[in-house]
């Protein structure tokens, strides 16, 4: 059973700098955030704001230049099966069947073949993936691959789940279904989730809280509590409450997206190509 006391994520004054010829560049600056055990929290922000960087630090792939990143009070020293991660790119091992993929984490833990097969079968059954257990990933659709990816990450019973734009490559319809599947799984397991996305609707629909990040160097611009009740239904995305939240987030993120695009975008430029051609061909002008 899930233990409620586990999975507290704390990020304190997280900074990430790297060296270039022009000197040190700050990619992420002074980010502090908390995910309570069993909470579903999203981070949204313009591209390049360092949200994935933050997730990679939590996964243990990189060390903060300064600040602290802890799970249940322990400083993260490297990747571990305690922290499951789902990537935007499909990351199933092509040479393993669906079941072997799900078994992988258990195998790394040294669990015997028979036992891990049993566990993988149970999990695949719960996820409704039994008919595909002997398929190679090549034969699965994108949504199916991500479902297997989630099951694989959950198989080792991690304390937290980190998702890096996991549905970014899926079509709109599949994405909605995947969001529903993810919330259902999360509600059953009560695991802490940190979800990175740039999709406002997705962030609101899934989360208890949403952090908005600024353009590079990324820092936390705002924190928004989503008061929508659980379980979430797709119809809620049309409620005035949802739309109100969406409007608020939209204005917050819009500013940052414009900044991320290189500063001021004038009203003229927003209209399109703001050149008066006076009937002339553009090619003739250039």
């Amino acid at each position: 059973m899930a233990e409620k006391s586990r999975g507290l994520i704390e990020v304190r004054d997280f900074c990430l700098r790297y060296e270039t010829m022009e000197g040190a560049v700050e990619a992420v600056s002074n980010v502090s955030l908390t995910v309570q055990p069993g909470e579903f929290v999203s981070i949204i922000g313009p591209s390049g704001c360092g949200k994935s960087t933050l997730l990679n630090a939590l996964a243990g792939f990189l060390k903060p230049s300064s600040g602290r990143v802890t799970v249940d009070g322990e400083t993260i020293s490297g990747p571990s099966a305690d922290r499951g991660m789902i990537f935007q790119q499909y990351s199933l091992f092509p040479w393993m069947t669906v079941r072997e993929n799900v078994e992988f984490g258990l195998k790394m833990r040294g669990i015997r073949r028979g036992e891990r097969e049993r566990q993988a079968r149970t999990l695949l059954g719960l996820a409704g993936l039994t008919p595909f257990e002997d398929y190679y990933p090549d034969r699965l659709s994108g949504g199916m691959k991500q479902r297997v990816g989630i099951v694989r990450a959950l198989a080792t019973g991690p304390r937290i789940l980190l998702l890096d734009e996991p549905f970014g490559a899926l079509d709109a319809q599949t994405r909605l279904i995947m969001q529903q599947i993810l919330t259902n799984m999360w509600q059953r397991l009560k695991i802490s989730v940190l979800f990175v996305t740039h999709d406002l609707d997705e962030a609101i629909f899934l989360s208890d809280r949403v952090y908005v990040m600024t353009a590079r160097p990324g820092s936390i611009k705002a924190e928004i509590v989503v008061p929508l009740q659980r379980p979430r239904q797709p119809a809620m995305t049309l409620s005035s409450e949802f739309l109100g939240l969406r409007r608020g987030l939209m204005s917050l993120i819009r500013e940052e997206s414009i900044r991320a695009m290189g500063g001021e975008v004038s009203a003229e430029a927003m209209k399109g190509l703001a050149i008066d051609l006076e009937g002339q061909d553009l090619a003739a002008l250039l």
Partner: peptide, 18 residues
């Protein structure tokens, strides 16, 4: 070799040899 696969394996508890 796709680096995402390497990262995925490490997130699932695989050490260097594995």
């Amino acid at each position: 070799v796709d680096p995402v696969l390497v990262r995925a394996a490490r997130c699932l508890g695989a050490r260097e040899a594995a």
